[in-house]
Amino acid sequence: MQPKPVALKVLDLASIILLAISTYLALVFAPTERVMGDVQRVFYFHIGTAWTALLGFILAAVFSVIYLIRKDLKWDRFQVAAIEVSLVFFLITIVLGSIWARPAWNTWWTWDPRLTTAAITELIYAAYFMLRQGIDDPDKRASFGAIYALLGGLSAPLTFFAIRLFRTIHPVVIGGTNPEADGGFSMTADMRLAFFFALFAFTVIFIDLFWNRLRLGDLQDNVEQLKLKVSM
């Protein structure tokens, strides 16, 4: 087994440190929001995980296209890694959002465009893994996975528009104002620092997890090949 690359070890360590600092900034350093109180602190990680999850889903769609053109299984491993990490991050986003929504909107859940799109996106990528599980041939699995990830990536924004035909109460903190939004606020300088630091920290954590997952995929492939060799 090839040892873990040094750069990856460094990145692992950096991720842990960044997460610790970001937690401190979000929970202690940033001032308490006037109206919502402490529960607003959820916001920093909520956006941090949401941003990286969306980044991962977009990357996965790009990897799909590259795989379908090149037919190189390397891109399939990239895609799986991106989607798997993003799926978990997005789940964290939804759970954190729900925790915030209980006091802010007085409900755990509402059928708002963002929330609904998030839930459906999770379902799409859960279906993606169910599809992959049902196929044994690696090339076919990769092709079907790439096609489905592409379809999912295209339909998610359309879902958002479709649900917006109904209505929204989700606040938009960064740019844009919605008079019907509930729970919006403007950030102070300290909040902004905690916010951008969280974005940065989660991006690094995402890259770290992505890399680890990629390495796991390579090792899985090696194991498959060794098994084939032994059985022959």
Partner: peptide, 18 residues
């Protein structure tokens, strides 16, 4: 796929929501 029929609605519905 191995699961065949039962997989189609699971694949189709989330993508067909729009």
């Amino acid at each position: 796929t191995r699961t065949r029929d039962i997989l189609l609605p699971i694949l189709l519905f989330p993508v067909a929501i729009p």
